[in-house]
Design a protein around this nucleic acid. Structure first.
Lengths: 148, 148
DNA sequence: CGCGCTCCTGACCAAAGAGGTCGAGAAAGT
DNA sequence: ACTTTCTCGACCTCTTTGGTCAGGAGCGCG
């Protein structure tokens, strides 16, 4: 139930790439822009690359850029690339656990939790973040009393 | 973004207590009913007690029972008792992080994530789980396509 | 070609958390 | 008294987290 530094870093780096648009952006520039330790960031970008979200080129004019248009990459994509499944219970997907006694209905609750996370994370794209105009699902939720 | 064994255990134990109603239930019986290592369970029950969710008595006719009626205890209460805050980013609440550059809107997304978790976890009570009749928020979410 | 630039990769590390076990003590009942 | 059952701290192993270091490997340019 917590967002790791890695996931946070990954999304922030991806947003920065989305904002840069075309040209390759150097890792060092990303690291400065988002205040992330360079070597940590490089590991993360590498994972994003392995998962097909990012491309890279080395050398003088090298750097990283998004493999897909920014409006086709969701936060869920980025988080999953660096953290695996979005919502696991005891390191296994919620529907795979067997509950005994009175706690069978609990499975359905965990599934609902995952679904609820997905309604947010799979809805917001990097382009949304760059423009600052978030989907209504997010603004509505963030506007609920006591959300802050 | 993952539910620990501890949190899962805690909820299951609490449900079992809710189902038992009045009388004190022995730790060993709970452990068997939910297939939880006894000594682990005892630590968890102790934490629940420290947080005022559970009462206990030692001795021959001792055991554990809920401090409040089952319909006044939510899953969120139980999870928070053993795991602390429901949704943190980098171990701090989402609204407390400062983002630079293009990722400022990210804060609002994390807040929405937390709010979305709360709509589920603060809505389901132990009594709901015992009866098996979950709130519509949950059944609706669990009924969305691809939820399973 | 050669050289510098930048990504790529694995090894490593300290600290914390997860998950679990042991053993001794303190209260409650009979 | 004596047994039962909770109470609680110490301890243990393994994995994860967040981070650092050092060396390669590919790319572009003069």
């Amino acid at each position: 139930m917590r967002v790791s530094a890695k996931a946070d870093y990954a999304v922030r780096a991806a947003v920065e790439l989305a904002a840069a648009g075309e040209g390759p952006v150097k890792g060092e520039k990303l690291a400065e822009a988002q205040d992330i330790p360079l070597q940590v960031l490089e590991h993360i970008l590498l994972e994003l690359k392995h998962n097909g979200l990012v491309r890279a080129r080395r050398g003088a004019k090298g750097g990283y850029w998004l493999a897909r248009p920014a409006d086709e990459v969701t936060i869920a994509d980025v988080v999953r690339a660096v953290e695996g499944p979005i919502a696991d219970v005891q390191s296994t997907p919620p529907e795979a656990i067997s509950y005994r006694g009175h706690s069978e209905p609990l499975r359905e609750v965990w599934v609902a939790v995952r679904a609820s996370l997905r309604t947010v994370l799979e809805e917001v794209t990097l382009a949304d973040l760059v423009s600052g105009e978030l989907p209504s699902v997010v603004t509505d939720l963030a506007a609920t009393p006591d959300a802050w």
